[in-house]
Design a protein around this nucleic acid. Sequence first.
DNA 1: CGAGCCGTTGAGGGGATTCAAGCTCAGTGG
DNA 2: CCACTGAGCTTGAATCCCCTCAACGGCTCG
Lengths: 249, 249
Amino acid sequence: MRRVYPLQAVQLERCAACPVREMALFGALDEAGLARLRDAGSEAAGIADRRLSADARLYALGERGASVYTVREGLVRLERVSEQGRRCIVRVVGRGELIGAEALLGQAYADEAVACTPVAVCRIPVALVDTLRAQDAALQLALMRRWQQALDGALRWRVDLQSGPAAYRVLRLLDDLGRQAGAGMPIWLPRREEIADLLGMALETASRVVSRLRRDGVLQVLPGRRSARLQPQALEQALARALGTAERG
Amino acid sequence: MRRVYPLQAVQLERCAACPVREMALFGALDEAGLARLRDAGSEAAGIADRRLSADARLYALGERGASVYTVREGLVRLERVSEQGRRCIVRVVGRGELIGAEALLGQAYADEAVACTPVAVCRIPVALVDTLRAQDAALQLALMRRWQQALDGALRWRVDLQSGPAAYRVLRLLDDLGRQAGAGMPIWLPRREEIADLLGMALETASRVVSRLRRDGVLQVLPGRRSARLQPQALEQALARALGTAERG
DNA sequence: CGAGCCGTTGAGGGGATTCAAGCTCAGTGG
DNA sequence: CCACTGAGCTTGAATCCCCTCAACGGCTCG
C-alpha cells in the first residue's frame, strides 16, 4: 500500500520525476534547489498540472495572471490582434518552453495562449518563482535564458516565416513543425485559417498551397485532418525549388 | 581647479548624473546599489561611453562580445538575414533601451547592431552586470523587465508593421518614429532600402509610397535627406484612409 | 566634371487577394 | 442507418497590388 505524503511532498516528488525537468524551468535546480522547493512549503502546492483540449484557452490577453506555465506536452500558440483587426499567431511553443513570463513582472498577459493540440502544462505560481529566484542563482539564470530564447525564437520566426513567396513560407512552417514533432512522427496540421494567420496570407492561398503540396506528395493528411505525415525528401526538394525561384530576385 | 578622481570614481559620478539613468539599466540601482557599483572597483572602469556615426556598426552577428549596451542618444537598428538571403531589420531601438543582452548568457550576438543616426551608447561589461546582479535584486528585476520589453516590442513590431498594404505600413512606421522622436521634432527618415528591409517590401514600393506622402503633405524631407518633419493631422488622416481600405477585407 | 549612390518614375507581369460557388466530412438526430 | 447540417476545405475567375526590370534625374564628392 502506498504511503500518503503531504500535498507539497507529492508535488515535489512529481517535479523531481518530471520527464521535461531537464528542459523545463526547474531543471536548473540542483538537489539543494529542489530541497528549497520543498521548504517553500505550502506554496509548492501551487504547482499544478493542467490539461487542455485542442482550441481551449490557457489564458487571455489582458488577464492579470499569477502564474507562468511550462509546456509539458503538445503545442500552444500565442495570438495577438493587429491594429487593423487581423489575428496574428506570433509563436507556437512546444515541450519545455515557458510562457506567460510577463506575469513575473506583475504585467497582464500580452497575448492569448491557446492549445493547438491536446496539451499538458505545468502551472507555476509567480510567488513560488519569486521565492526561489531570490535564493537560487541557477534559477535566475535559467529564467534569463528562457527570455532570451523566447526573444530569439520570435525574431527568427518573423524573419524566416513572414517573408518570401507563399509556397516557401508554408514549406518552412511544415519543416519547423516536423522538427518539433521529431523525424518520422506525424505533425500537427493547422487549419487553413491558422496557417494564414501564422504566415500572414489569405486563407485561400494557404489552402491552394497545401493542396498542391498534397498532390506533390510532400504531405499526407491523416484521418481527422488535424495531423499529417511529411515526406522529408520531397519537402526538401520543394523547398529547394521554392528557394530557387525566390533567389532569382 | 577640478579635483582629479581615480578612473572608476569618475565613471561612477557620470553614471549618477546620467540623463537616461531613470530609464537605463542602472536606473534600478538605489544609492546603496551605486555604492556597490563603486565597490566593484576596477571593473566599474569598464563602463565606457562610445559614440558612433550613422551607419557604423556597434557589434556584428556571431561576435562573442563581453558587453551589453544602453542607448543614450540616437537610434540603433538590429538586422538579421533571412534564410532566403534577404536582409531584415528586426527592431529599431532608442534612448534607454538595452541591447546585446544575449552576451549576459555567454552567447554570441544574435544580430547586427548598426547606428541609424549618430549614436551614443553606454558600454557595460558583462562581468560587472554579473557582479551587481548577484547582490542587487532590483537590478535583477530591471534586467527581466528589459528582456520582456524587448520581446513585447519585437512582437508588436511584427504584428503591426509586417502586415497590411504597403502605404499603411509606411504610415505606421512614420508614426512610430514620430513618437520616438517626440511631437514636433524631426524624425529620422530611413533610406528607401532601409524602409523596405524594415517593412518587408521592395525598395521601389517604399519610394513610391514616400513620394506620394510627400506630395500629400504628410511628410517634408529636410536637407540632408536623413530627417523629415511630419504633419501629424495629415498623417492621421492618411492612416485612417489606409485603414479604411484595409478593413474592407 | 564625371562617377556613383540614392531616389524617382514608368511599363509590364505575376503572385496573392477577393468574391463566389461547390465540395468533403464528421457529427447529429430522426 | 442515413439524410441532414454546418464547419472547414477546395477551386475558379477576376482583380489588384506589388515586384521586377529599366531608365532617368539629382545630389555629393573626389
